[in-house]
């Protein structure tokens, strides 16, 4: 099933036939002083797959996500995207990689408070040098797609928690990333809003063709993913595909 990019997609313009890429973790280990946060973790995420990462607090989920996305460098092991090393890159190049090819949604505190919604969303495009008018037009389209039409000029403080997370989702997707990373994106929301946000996150990520790695505490959230990886004590405890019937 070929992913359908929206007509304004920058990917259509820049890289019409980008080969889809696998994100691979190979024997990852990471410690903070005496604390072992990751111990020999290995798995692949094929392109387009939505993976939920679950596990008790302190088990190493965030550390894993940060290593996968090139925010942290593992002490041992390697992360690669389409066969190219991520963890081996220099700081600057990992930054560039995150900016260009990854999208991020965090729990909170990530939207810039002085910027109206549309500028928050347009930020990744502006950072790659796309002119303001085009960036804002694309941002408005994304806001419309996420049910936020009419809120383009509101600032984060004037939005509800769920709306703010949808802004963050739009921002994570606007530059057509290959992988979207989300660390407890619904952690600060009530359950109903959380589920709504999770549904939107998985649906929009899927329709843009990106892979999704989402850390969550919520059992039900995993329903919208294709695969569930459970982390316990810094290791992969369980890794299973979620069959369609249960989704």
């Amino acid at each position: 099933m070929a992913p359908a990019f929206p007509p304004w997609s920058t990917r259509n313009m820049i890289t019409p036939s980008l080969p889809r890429k696998t994100l691979a973790a190979h024997n990852l280990s990471k410690s903070y002083g005496p604390v072992r946060a990751l111990a020999d973790v290995t798995f692949d995420i094929p392109s387009g797959q939505a993976v939920a990462i679950m596990g008790p607090s302190g088990s190493g989920k965030s550390t894993l996500l940060h290593c996968l996305s090139g925010i942290l460098v593992p002490d041992a092991g390697e992360v690669s995207l389409g066969g190219e090393s991520v963890s081996g890159l220099k700081d600057k190049h990992r930054s560039l990689l995150r900016r260009r090819r990854f999208g991020f949604v965090f729990q909170d505190g990530q939207l810039l408070p002085e910027l109206p919604a549309r500028e928050n969303v347009a930020l990744p495009l502006l950072l790659t040098g796309i002119p303001r008018n085009r960036a804002l037009k694309t941002a408005d389209e994304w806001l419309g797609k996420l049910g936020l039409a009419g809120m383009e000029n509101r600032r984060p403080g004037e939005l509800s928690g769920g709306q703010a997370q949808r802004i963050a989702i739009a921002r994570a997707l606007i530059h057509e990333p290959e992988v979207v990373f989300a660390d407890e994106p619904t952690g600060a929301l009530d359950q109903a809003t959380g589920h709504e946000v999770m549904q939107i996150l998985t649906a929009t990520t899927a329709s843009s063709g990106a892979s999704l790695v989402v850390v969550t505490h919520d059992d039900e959230v995993a329903r919208w993913c294709q695969r569930l990886i459970e982390i316990r004590d810094a290791m992969v405890h369980d890794d299973q595909l979620i069959s369609r019937s249960t989704r």
């Binding site: 995150r98 991020f104 810039l112």
Partner: peptide, 13 residues
């Protein structure tokens, strides 16, 4: 700090 850490994670120099 939270804001600049988030930007850093997103890859903003």
């Amino acid at each position: 700090a939270p804001e600049s850490i988030a930007l850093d994670r997103m890859g903003v120099p």
